[in-house]
Simulated assay, not measured.
Amino acid sequence: MPDSQKEPSVPTSKLEVVDWGRTRYSDAFERQKAMVLQRREGQIGDTLIFTEHHPVYTVGLRKDADRHLVWSEAALKAAGIEFVRSNRGGDITYHGPGQVVGYPIVSLQHKRDLHAYLRDLEETVIRTMTYFGLETGRREGKTGIWLEDRKICAIGVAVRSWITYHGFALNVCPNLQHFSGIVPCGITDGTVTSMEKELAAPVDMEAVKARLAVEFRQVFLEVGRSDGKS
């Protein structure tokens, strides 16, 4: 458990958890941006969104990320995978069915430390993986959550007016073959894995989302929040 004296990067005593079900990435992106504005104006509180995306490759803001797209436009069309540019941090990644995507829309006004927020987001996923019997961690110089050189969760965030959006994508049971169409996150010295592959057993998506919500609250809570406008 975290040190009870630690100042949380996001106090979430009134966190709302919502599930959008399966969405197109571009639609979810627009909905996030609208919620960022609502959060800034104090119309909504901190919110953790869960969704699964229809198959899509998204490119972040990292320089030369485009070069890590391997498949041709024809191959993408044949596989039914969209290609979308995003304003999140990071390189190129894949989203698709069987992957839990988490989008926290939370205010960092009380503690403007994006690095601390990222570490706490990673900790949320690490604790969730431990709950399911997987010992994961960070990898020096790399983003996301790993089992040695196997990446199980991608993380890419953005902040506007100190309100967070974008977030993490945890591989529960996606089609891992779809990752071969890209160099995932620009990684050339590792592979991509999933909970199902590592556990060699089916994994309940709803159980994973429920545990992520529990761990998010436990990592970020501890101190009551201020309800003033952001």
Rank of each mutant, 00 (worst) to 15 (best):
M1A: 11
D3N: 15
K6Q: 14
K6C: 11
V17L: 10
V17K: 08
D19Q: 07
R22L: 09
L37R: 06
I44T: 11
G45K: 10
G45A: 10
D46V: 03
T47C: 11
L48S: 05
I49K: 09
E52Y: 07
H53V: 03
K63N: 10
K63V: 11
D64H: 12
R67D: 07
S72D: 08
A74M: 11
A74R: 14
A75N: 05
K77D: 13
G80P: 09
E82I: 08
D91L: 01
H95K: 04
G96R: 01
G96W: 06
Y103M: 10
V106H: 10
Y117R: 09
Y117P: 06
D120C: 07
L121K: 06
L121T: 08
I126G: 02
T128F: 03
T128S: 05
F132C: 05
E135D: 15
R139M: 11
I152Y: 06
C153W: 01
A154H: 03
V157P: 00
A158Q: 09
V159I: 13
V159P: 07
W162Q: 06
C173K: 10
N175V: 08
F179S: 06
V183E: 13
C185I: 12
T188I: 08
A201Q: 14
V203K: 03
A207K: 15
K209N: 01
A210G: 11
R211H: 14
R211L: 10
F216Q: 01
S226H: 15
